[in-house]
């Protein structure tokens, strides 16, 4: 482990003042901004400033935060190198798509808003459970695998999941799944982001989080302190997979069209880039990494296309360069393992 600049965020210095910003304040602020924003955009008001495209970007940022934060649980806190996160996302996306189109009644058959909310709740719940199940199974199979081999096996599962979906005609096979109703909007995604960050923060600051960190720090010592590593690892995989499934479920019901290829190795790599950009073992870093990456990509797209429209694609060359430069110059990412005050625990007595 390379030396970070300060101890892990679970222990604020005794003499620091109680942090002023709390998690619930952030939740309130996000909702106070998100709900009017969504309503104004839906109503088509002030379309110059409140461009639906910006709202779409915010929605994508939200879904990516869920993915990156949940992968951080495995790669940052547990210290493993899991390479199959898009696979969990695929399971969630297809489960939600199936539930929303083929199992549940259409939103038209139910009262407005409430019907959509119900469908969304059930489909997302189903997506989380299905992904968690797959995550649990993978954790079970890889119970003794660590390091490089775990990376290989998780990637292998990612490929198998994508390949399996390609062979299921019922969900569209390689052509993809079309006609998914658009049940999500920015407010729903924002709520899910808050839920994800809140739950992950709570777990990381509990005995479960300390056990995960101890495995990362010294697996043998952790084991000889009575930690069942397979069990702890399996919990982490199950939880991380569940949230990746949540992001997948939101994704499917936002894009309305999914193909197996959108969940392959390239998606996993994109999640990794954002994770390492922000910083490992820091939820603040996960949020910042996603925002910085998305904003940067958009800026590059606009900047490059002012010269020539076809140049916009060249930003795909810049994102791997950013990743390489981060690794060469600042391996701890933008935030290292620091946390914003509202993600740190309350000052203990």
């Amino acid at each position: 482990m390379s030396s970070p600049s300060q101890p892990l965020p679970t222990a604020p210095p005794a003499d620091s003042k109680p942090p002023r910003v709390r998690f619930w304040m952030v939740c309130v602020a996000v909702l106070v901004l998100a709900i009017p924003l969504q309503l104004l955009v839906d109503a088509g008001l002030y379309s110059d400033v409140l461009n639906p495209y910006y709202l779409h970007l915010l929605t994508v940022i939200g879904m990516n935060i869920i993915l990156v934060a949940s992968l951080n649980l495995l790669n940052g806190y547990l210290g493993e190198f899991a390479l199959g996160h898009a696979g969990f996302m695929a399971v969630g996306a297809y489960t939600a798509a199936l539930l929303a189109t083929k199992v549940l009644p259409g939103a038209a058959a139910m009262p407005p808003v409430i019907g959509t909310v119900l469908i969304l709740l059930v489909s997302l719940g189903g997506a989380m459970i299905a992904s968690a199940g797959v995550g649990y199974l993978i954790g079970l199979v890889t119970f003794k695998t660590v390091g490089d081999y775990l990376a290989i096996i998780t990637l292998g599962f990612n490929m198998i999941i994508v390949n399996a979906i390609q062979n299921i005609e019922f969900v569209g096979g390689p052509r993809g799944f079309t006609g998914i109703p658009k049940n999500t909007n920015f407010v729903a995604v924002a709520l899910c982001v808050l839920l994800t960050i809140g739950v992950l923060r709570n777990l990381i600051q509990s005995t479960f989080g300390r056990v995960w960190l101890s495995i990362r720090e010294n697996a043998i010592a952790a084991e000889l302190m009575g930690v069942s590593i397979p069990k702890a690892k399996n919990w982490a995989f199950t939880i991380a997979a569940a949230f990746a499934g949540l992001a997948g479920g939101l994704w499917a019901q936002n894009q309305q069209f999914i193909t197996p290829r959108s969940f392959d190795y390239s998606k996993t790599t994109e999640i990794l880039v954002m994770l390492y950009l922000g910083g490992m073992a820091s939820l603040s870093g996960s949020i910042l990494g996603v925002v910085a990456y998305t904003v940067l990509m958009e800026l590059l797209r606009n900047l490059l296309s002012t010269f020539a429209p076809q140049l916009a694609e060249w930003r795909m060359l810049i994102s791997p360069l950013i990743l390489i430069i981060i690794m060469l110059t600042r391996q701890t990412g933008l935030l290292g393992n620091r946390e914003w005050s509202w993600l740190r625990p309350k000052q203990g007595a």
Partner: peptide
Amino acid sequence: RLFAQMSVLDNITMALHAHA
């Protein structure tokens, strides 16, 4: 074999995981 990047306190609190 300490948990080097964890705080001194967390090294002990972690050890109490079975009694959480």
